[in-house]
Each structure stands twice: as C-alpha cells, then as structure tokens.
Design a protein around this nucleic acid. Structure first.
Lengths: 268, 268
DNA sequence: CGAGCTTTTGAACGCAGTCAACAATTGTGG
DNA sequence: CCACAATTGTTGACTGCGTTCAAAAGCTCG
C-alpha cells in the first residue's frame, strides 16, 4: 500500500519556488491559438473575429508558478501564449504524476469550462505568457457559434487522446522507450505549432519533471537520457532538444503519431 | 527499448475469442443514459424528447467482441445499454493497455463524434447490449441544443478526468494500491449508475484484463487480489465484487472520489 | 468428458527504485 | 563580481517490487 509516511523526496519534490508574477498586458497575441484551432477546422472570418473579441486578460507566470490549483474553481480558462505548462496530480503520499504538457496555443484548463473545478493542478514549466478568459463569455460564444464549440470540444478530446497514449506509455513500455516516446511527441507537437524547424525544439524541462511525467525515478531517467545520448539518438542539454536519428528513435520508442491527429502526418 | 520480437504472452493475450453477434432491437432502453446526463445538468422535457428521437440502432455483442477498431471510422457513436465495455491500446510489441472501462449509460466512442477515427480500440468486457447513433444526427442535435452539447462534452471531459487519475494510479502507486483504487472506483461508478446497492456490484472481469488495466502482470494481480481478500478488504470471485471494509480499502488505496464528480459525494 | 481458458503457486531473475555522495549549474545577495 | 546557497545532474552500490517462466489445478462450455 501507499505509505503516507515521511515526506517523499527526489522526484516528488514539487514545492513552489518562485513567486507568481502577474502583469496585465493590453494586447494579446492569439495567433498560435487561432492557428491551432484552424489547423483542422477552417474558421470563418466571423468566427475568428468573435474569438478576438473575447475579453482575454494577459499575465506572466514565472517557471514553477501555479496557474490553477487542483479542486479550485477559477471561473476562467487559461491560454498558454508562450512557454510550456503542465498539469499534475498528487498522491496522498505526495508523489507527483505529471498528466499533461501544454504548448503555446493550448488551453490546459479548458476542461473547467464544463467541469468547474480542475481535477489536476496546472503550473508553468517555463516562464510563461498566458491569457485568461472568464467562463461566461466563452460559454456564450460556444452557444452562439456551434462550430467554435466543436473546435474547442475537439481540443479537449485531443488532450484526452494524448492522455490515453501516455497511459499506454507508462503502463506498458520500458523506461528507455518511455523517454524516447515523449521526446518524439514533443518535437512533433512543437513542429505542428510552428515553433520549431526540422528535427529539434526547445524543451527546457528538468529531469525531475521528466521523471514525474513518465512514472520513473529521476535517477533512472538520468541513465535513460544518457543512453539515448550515447546511442546518438538525441542531443539534449536540458533546454534544447535535437533528435539526431528520427527513424531509429521513433521505432525504438514504438512511436506512432496517429494519436496526435497532426494535419501533416509526415514524420521528420 | 521495446523488443518487437516474439509474441507477448500472458496478460497481452487479447485475441478475439467469440464472434460478434448483431441483433437489431426495436425499442431501446435509454433510461441509464438519460439518468446519467441529467445527474448534473437538469434537462428539459424537450431535450429529453430530442434524445429519444435520435435514430438509435440496437445490437448485442458477446463478451470479447469488438465494438470499434483503433484507427477506424465507424461514423457512429455507441451507447452501452447493458454490460461493461473497455477501450484499449496496443504497443507495437502487442502489449495491451486498457485505457478505460465503460458502464451502462456511457458512450465509450463519443470522442469519435469530433475526432472521426477512434484512437483506441473498444471491446465488450461482458455480453453487452449496445445502441449506435450515426454522427450526423448527433451533431445536428448538438447544434440545435447547446445544452445537450455541453452535457455530452462534459461526458468526454469526465472520461478524460478518469484517464488522468488512472495515469496517477499506474505511474505512482504500488500494485496493491492500484488494484484497490480501481475496485473503489468501479463500485462508486456502478452505485452512481444505480446498478448496485450498498457496498458491492457486478464486476465480471478476468485477472488478465485487470492486469492490463493496471499496467501489471496477471501473476502479480493474482497475488494482490489474494492479499486484498486475505486482509478482509474485499470479496471477489471474478464476478461479484463486494467491498467489506470501505474505510480501510479506500485509505490504503489512496482513493479520493473527487475526480469522478459524483452528484452524491458521500462514500459508502 | 475433454479442450481451452483462467487462476494459482513457486522459484529465479531483472528492471527500476532507493540511498548516498559528489559535481555541475543556477540563482542571489552583498 | 564574487561567494554562498540551492537546485539539478551524475555516479555507484544495494535493494526490492514486480516480471518471467513453468507447471498444476479449477472452471466453463461445447
């Protein structure tokens, strides 16, 4: 059984370290969000304009800062304008499982639109620019524009599809494949978002967080990363990730991008 | 890395065993579905009637039969009228991860309404009565009745919430807690569906499937189940599940039902 | 009644966790 | 700008939870 005993260390050390910094911003860059929505559904000018009219509130959050607390009702949804965010859940013993990673253009707490409180905490992985919209205008928009509602619904379904693949990853693949699989996913998602060219992208994550995302210890993740590096499969210094041999990495990690529903299904 | 080598055995033996049996049924019982939808959103008589007018097609599927194949477009959604279904994903090496369990009143392939093809296979765990509706009329209903769209959207969000809890379960909890956690979840979900009274419910699942749902080997699941039995926590013969000591089981398994969003949050 | 699953048990193995110490890096304040 | 603190990354040794392998016993159902 899970011992609710002494504080768990290592990969479960998830205390907040930096204060949250909020800065109201006047003009908000919605291009990555609009690009994401239109990638699969073409939106009319009307619909895009309606999104532009939503009362977004800009803010900045430093790496490690909380965006939403588990079980709390914020009354708004959050768009990642720039940076990485993640959602996580904690066991009673304090172990952390990262259950999702979010890129610019994504809405990590979109589920709260219809569930109210979030079932997972959401925090900034890197320094982030975010923008929040209250639930009310967003719900009204969905009622008025069913196609937009569908597009947002689809966003939440995509998050769920990724969650199921992560479950497969954590439940069935060994540590090396798990790590490789996540690296593949990140590069493709960043590429789709237009935030990276070719075979690499920014991926500034600690090995501790990586371990918590993959259900492994940070010590073991360290060894897996080294093995991937020494095999000439990836380059990664904790910030910039480059995949050196996509073919070998993706096959070795049993990576099939179907679950990401990329418009451009071609691999690297 | 995952060896794509010889066939995986044991818990990954997921070949179809019984043929699919389709039987058109004239009148379909939507009460469990309507109950489920109205549990959190009160629906108007109009809205309920609109659901009743949907062109459902009844069918029966024997235990083990396929309901939807991974990657295929069925063009319809499936309601479980009676029985248990599950969704699963396979690794390249053939290992199976069960990524969701579905009870009467639930729609395991609802995500296909907006994603088209399912990212997971769906199969009957027990003999099932199901009912299918084509996507088109369902989409039209969602456009005409935004409140119904929200209710269905919420259904998919609930599935995602459960998926995240499973990720936490598989990634962070030890084998005994994992098993106990799932037992707790099933009893509460069945109770909410009104399909069980008190502290037990039907749960006719093989230990092999249980293992695949929890990311464990069937051998180990067997030992965990025995431990739960010998500790006087549960009774389970592979069919009927009874929780003998909810307090001890739920605390030992680190079970917190918040993620299920039950209308009635009270435990047993 | 026998074939085919599923459950159960035992023994040995191995992947990944834990513990501990140190190195490297990053951040901070004087 | 440097010294100090804190976090993160790295390495080695040991441990243990859960897997694998194998065989037998129980069910279920044609």
């Amino acid at each position: 059984m899970v011992t609710a005993g002494p504080a768990v260390q290592c990969s479960s050390d998830h205390r907040k370290r930096r204060a949250r910094t909020l800065t109201s911003v006047s003009s908000i860059d919605l291009t990555s969000f609009l690009n994401r929505l239109t990638r699969l559904h073409a939106l009319s000018g009307d619909e895009k304009a309606a999104i532009g009219r939503l009362p977004f509130q800009g803010a900045r959050i430093a790496a490690g800062g909380q965006i939403a607390r588990e079980g709390h009702r914020t009354g708004h949804c959050t768009l990642i304008v720039e940076g990485y965010a993640y959602s996580y859940k904690l066991t009673g013993g304090g172990q952390r499982q990262i259950v999702g990673l979010f890129l610019a253009g994504e809405l990590p707490d979109l589920p709260t639109l219809h569930l109210g409180a979030s079932d997972a905490g959401i925090a900034a992985l890197t320094d982030c620019r975010i923008a929040t919209v209250a639930h009310e205008p967003l719900r009204r928009l969905c009622e008025a524009q069913p196609r937009l509602a569908s597009a947002l619904w689809r966003e939440t379904l995509l998050q769920a599809s990724i969650a199921r693949e992560w479950m497969l990853n954590i439940g069935q693949r060994d540590a090396l494949a798990r790590a490789g699989h996540l690296f593949c996913e990140i590069v493709l998602r960043q590429r789709e978002a237009g935030l990276s060219a070719g075979e690499g992208c920014d991926f500034p994550i600690t090995q501790i967080a990586l371990a918590d995302a993959l259900g492994l210890s940070s010590v073991h993740i360290n060894r897996m990363v080294q093995e991937l590096r020494n095999s000439g499969l990836i380059e990664w210094d904790g910030r910039r990730l480059t995949i050196l041999d996509w073919r070998r990495l993706s096959t070795g990690a049993d990576f099939d991008p179907a679950y990401l529903r990329l418009a451009d299904a071609a691999a690297l």
